[in-house]
Structure formats: structure tokens, C-alpha cells
Computed example of a mutant assay.
Amino acid sequence: MTRKVMSKITLVLAVAAFALSTQAAFAQKPGVEKLYIMNCGEGVAGDIGRWSPGVNEGKSMDFVDTCYLIKHAKGWFLWDTGIPDAIAAMPNGLVPADPKAVTWRRPKTLASQLEQIGVEPSDVKAMGVSHTHPDHIGNVEMFPQATLYVQKAEYDWPGANNEPRFKPSHPVELLNGDKDVFGDGSITVLSTPGHTPGHQSLMVRLPKTGVVVLSGDAAHFRDNYDNRRVPAINFSKEQSLASMQKIADTISKEEAQLWINHDKAQRDTQKMSPEFYD
């Protein structure tokens, strides 16, 4: 074999190796590009002993309500929708019947925050909610075309007066456990029942930030999570404790950050939309 032929073979092999390495790099590229944290409500809890029995009795606390908009290569994905945008027009906010509960206000609407980053509600093709309490599903029907990912146990759970929790016409994918939404490991719904029958959390794999777990109401603030406190209002104490442990195991395995929906102290340290995490 001549030197010239060997040189050609070497060149061909080098090009092939480069092509394979490039393909591998693209294959490993996460599908998630950006994550925006949206202000979906601010409020004051009258008595946080409601969420931590035997602790903090009679103590008031500021709460926040958070939504997360995720840009994936296959489209926009929204996690939780907060309290209804209509509450923005209420001067005194939404005052609960129970003085121990949260009085919610809406300083910014979800619609205005989407508009600020150039996203139309119709651009959102898929969405999920951690659970079906009103402060998490308040704007679901702003996205009637988006496929809703929800646990079957939550979807079947009767609402007030045995009414359905979502409009029957809303496209939905009912889940029975964890779900890799786009099949690439970048957005994974984690079944974490306990707060409600079909409560779920979300694991998001960001290219630079790394893995974050959006825990919904598996815990309402960090102190409750750290001390494994379960609100008396939860559907199941045993499931709640098991779900907190599942989240802890996931965080340990993935070296992930834990983002707690209602925790104002944590949210005050985070970048809010129009800034984003990538």
C-alpha cells in the first residue's frame, strides 16, 4: 500500500471519527434551552401552623406562588399556572374564608409576563400542574390547546360538588407514575402523591444550570421539607413522607437543586422573568 493511499485512508478515518463525535455531541445536547420563573401570585398566610402542625402556631408568613415556563427544542412547556389573572383586578386580593389561609394578590398577570418575552398562550403546546388546588390551576384554560399532563388519580379526584377539576374538552394525558415528557430525559414528571392524591413534581435538566426539581407543594417552605413536616390538610401523611424522600433521593442522585414553589425566601434569591436560567 502506497503512502498516498494510506494518507487518504487516514484522512477518511479522521473525517468519520469527527462526524461521529459531532453526532454524539448533538445527541447529548439537552432538549431544554431556557427556564423562566414567573410571578404567579403573592400573599400572606394568616397562620403557618396550618402547614406545620405543632410548629409556628399563630405565626404569619409571606407566601409566593410560582409558575415555570420552559423552552424545549420541541416547544414551550408550562408548569403550574398560579392563581387566576383576574385577581389582579381585586384591590384587596382574594381573601379566604379561613383567616389562617393565604390572602392572595396578583401583582403581575401571567398573560403580561408571557407577552414581555414574546410568547403567545397559543405557543404553549404542553403543560403540567403539580396538583389541582386553585392556586396552581387558576389559568389552565388560558391554554386550551395545550396537552395537560396530570396524574390519573388527581384527574379523577372529585372537585367541589363532585364537579370535574378541568374542562372535559381540555386535551389531557393521564399519567400513572413518572413520565419523560419529550423522551430525552430533559423534562420528567415525578409522581409525588400525598399533598393530594395525584400530586406531582418536575425534574428539569438544564444545559448550564444543571438539574432542578420543582417540588410543587410536596413541601410549602424549606423548613418543612428539612424537618419532614406534613400539613394536617394533606391527603395522606404516609404518601407525603414517601414523596419527600423520593425527592431527596432524586436530588442526591442527580446532584440537583430543589426549588420550592411557595418559598418566598428562596424565590427572592432567584432570577425572575424576563431573565432566565439556561
Rank of each mutant, 00 (worst) to 15 (best):
residue 206 L to Q: 00
residue 186 S to A: 11
residue 255 E to T: 08
residue 31 G to T: 06
residue 123 D to G: 06
residue 89 A to C: 05
residue 21 S to L: 13
residue 90 M to H: 03
residue 86 A to R: 05
residue 268 D to R: 04
residue 4 K to M: 14
residue 217 D to A: 09
residue 4 K to S: 14
residue 236 S to K: 05
residue 109 T to F: 04
residue 3 R to D: 08
residue 79 W to A: 01
residue 129 V to G: 08
residue 75 G to R: 02
residue 259 W to M: 05
residue 200 Q to F: 13
residue 188 T to F: 07
residue 260 I to H: 06
residue 154 E to R: 04
residue 173 E to V: 05
residue 103 T to N: 04
residue 261 N to G: 03
residue 34 K to S: 08
residue 189 V to H: 11
residue 105 R to A: 09
residue 206 L to P: 04
residue 278 D to N: 14
residue 13 L to G: 11
residue 250 T to H: 02
residue 127 M to G: 03
residue 29 K to Q: 13
residue 127 M to V: 02
residue 38 M to K: 03
residue 86 A to F: 01
residue 68 Y to T: 01
residue 161 N to C: 04
residue 29 K to W: 06
residue 37 I to T: 07
residue 80 D to C: 03
residue 15 V to E: 13
residue 233 I to E: 10
residue 268 D to S: 14
residue 27 A to C: 02
residue 28 Q to A: 12
residue 151 Q to M: 13
residue 271 K to C: 04
residue 231 P to T: 09
residue 241 L to F: 01
residue 23 Q to G: 05
residue 40 C to S: 14
residue 74 K to I: 03
residue 191 S to E: 15
residue 151 Q to D: 09
residue 15 V to N: 11
residue 137 I to V: 15
residue 174 L to C: 05
residue 87 I to R: 00
residue 133 H to C: 05
residue 85 D to Q: 09
residue 211 V to A: 01
residue 164 P to N: 13
residue 223 D to V: 00
residue 207 P to T: 00
residue 93 G to E: 11
residue 170 H to Y: 10
residue 112 S to R: 00
residue 16 A to N: 04
residue 3 R to I: 13
residue 54 G to R: 13
residue 46 G to L: 12
residue 141 E to N: 14
residue 232 A to K: 10
residue 267 R to Q: 09
residue 157 W to D: 13
residue 211 V to W: 00
residue 240 S to D: 04
residue 44 V to K: 12
residue 275 E to P: 03
residue 158 P to M: 13
residue 113 Q to N: 09
residue 265 A to T: 13
residue 38 M to A: 07
residue 122 S to D: 14
residue 272 M to F: 14
residue 120 E to R: 12
residue 247 I to G: 01
residue 81 T to W: 06
residue 230 V to K: 08
residue 124 V to S: 05
residue 1 M to N: 12
residue 239 Q to V: 02
residue 133 H to P: 01
residue 101 A to I: 00
residue 227 N to R: 14
residue 89 A to G: 08
residue 255 E to L: 02
residue 134 P to M: 10
residue 69 L to P: 08
residue 63 F to A: 03
residue 109 T to Y: 04
residue 27 A to P: 02
residue 93 G to N: 12
residue 210 G to M: 01
residue 109 T to L: 08
residue 47 D to I: 07
residue 44 V to Y: 10
residue 262 H to Y: 02
residue 50 R to A: 11
residue 112 S to P: 03
residue 96 P to A: 11
residue 189 V to G: 12
residue 167 K to A: 15
residue 250 T to Y: 01
residue 223 D to Y: 09
residue 92 N to K: 15
residue 197 P to G: 08
residue 278 D to H: 06
residue 208 K to P: 01
residue 248 A to K: 06
residue 102 V to A: 06
residue 197 P to C: 04
residue 35 L to A: 12
residue 144 P to G: 06
residue 92 N to H: 15
residue 108 K to T: 10
residue 56 N to F: 15
residue 252 S to L: 07
residue 178 D to S: 12
residue 91 P to W: 09
residue 90 M to S: 06
residue 269 T to R: 11
residue 129 V to C: 14
residue 152 K to D: 12
residue 252 S to W: 01
residue 135 D to T: 11
residue 13 L to W: 12
residue 186 S to F: 03
residue 64 V to K: 01
residue 156 D to W: 05
residue 224 N to F: 10
residue 90 M to A: 09
